[in-house]
Simulated scan of single mutants.
Amino acid sequence: MKIPIVAYGDPVLRKKAVEISADYPNLGELISNMFETMYNASGVGLAAPQVGLSIRLFVIDLSDKDDPGYEDFKKVFINATIVEEKGVIWEFNEGCLSIPDIREDIKRLDTVTISYYDENWQLRNETYDGLGARAIQHEFDHIEGKLFIDKLSPLRRAMLKSRFDAIKKGAIDVDYKMKFPMASKRR
């Protein structure tokens, strides 16, 4: 089942998400629905706050990207914590399903070590670089209440203000179902 994606401006995107336990209600169904929602929106990652749930859960699928080593990278991250970020600063053009039609060059370190539980509640401690590290850092930011646009300069954010306001109001065209925090009732 596709879930509406919460748009920029909704307070849930700015909350630090809470940990969950293995008996979280309908967790398997939620994970499946998050993947379906992400694929429908042509995304590579989706965090629970983006579907209105302030819990520490995100999913990533990089398997169709041309990045060596990530051909079978379809993962579920539960209660994740970043252990270490290191390497060289790498600038890459990022976007976000909650902030449609805005893409910006964002600087991040190119290597990340993350500790998390997978969908079978197996504890994992893994290190990734390149696109995998970037996707993990982006989705991890969501469960910390941060957005990729927070990494932009104040001047650049000010230049994008009218576009942010349009997103909040739902005055944009998207190809997937969204929930806009300030949309008029006629939508």
Rank of each mutant, 00 (worst) to 15 (best):
N125D: 13
K161G: 03
D101T: 15
N120D: 15
Y176N: 10
G95I: 11
Y39E: 08
I114C: 00
G145T: 01
L30A: 04
M34E: 01
G170K: 05
I114T: 08
L57M: 08
L97W: 08
D64V: 03
K75V: 01
R157N: 09
K74Q: 14
Y128D: 08
A158L: 06
R187T: 02
L30S: 10
N120C: 08
P49N: 08
L62G: 09
S184Q: 10
N120G: 07
R157W: 06
R56D: 11
G43T: 04
D150F: 00
F140P: 03
F164R: 06
A48W: 12
I3M: 14
I99V: 15
V18H: 10
N79G: 06
L152I: 10
K107V: 00
R14T: 05
F140C: 05
G87H: 04
P100I: 12
L53M: 15
G43E: 10
N33I: 02
D150P: 03
A133G: 05
N120P: 02
D66A: 10
G43V: 11
L30E: 08
V18W: 00
F92N: 10
D110K: 04
A166M: 09
Y39A: 06
D118H: 04
E84D: 13
A48C: 13
G130L: 02
L155S: 01
E29R: 15
D141Q: 02
E144K: 05
Y176F: 15
G69D: 12
M182P: 00
V44F: 05
K65R: 15
D141K: 03
F35H: 03
Y176W: 11
M182K: 13
A41P: 04
S42N: 14
W90N: 11
N120M: 06
F35K: 05
G95E: 06
G9Y: 12
E104I: 10
L53S: 02
L152D: 07
A183I: 05
E104K: 14
G132H: 02
E94T: 05
Y117F: 15
E126A: 01
P49S: 09
S32F: 10
L147N: 02
P100M: 12
S184W: 04
V18N: 13
Y24P: 10
M182D: 15
P25Q: 07
G43Q: 08
I99H: 09
A183V: 09
G170C: 11
L155W: 07
I89R: 12
S184I: 01
T81A: 07
P4W: 13
L30W: 14
Y176I: 06
P11R: 13
A41L: 11
Y24N: 06
L53H: 13
I3K: 15
E126N: 13
M34W: 06
L109A: 00
L152C: 11
P4E: 05
I102W: 14
A17T: 00
S21N: 14
K2A: 13
G45Y: 01
S42T: 07
G52F: 09
L131P: 00
K74A: 10
R124E: 13
A171R: 12
D64I: 00
F58W: 03
W121T: 12
G45W: 00
R156K: 15
W121S: 13
R108P: 06
L62W: 01
K185N: 12
P68C: 08
C96T: 08
K179S: 15
I60W: 04
K179D: 13
I31E: 02
E91F: 03
H142R: 07
D175M: 05
N40Y: 14
N40M: 07
Y70P: 05
A133Q: 04
G130V: 00
V174M: 06
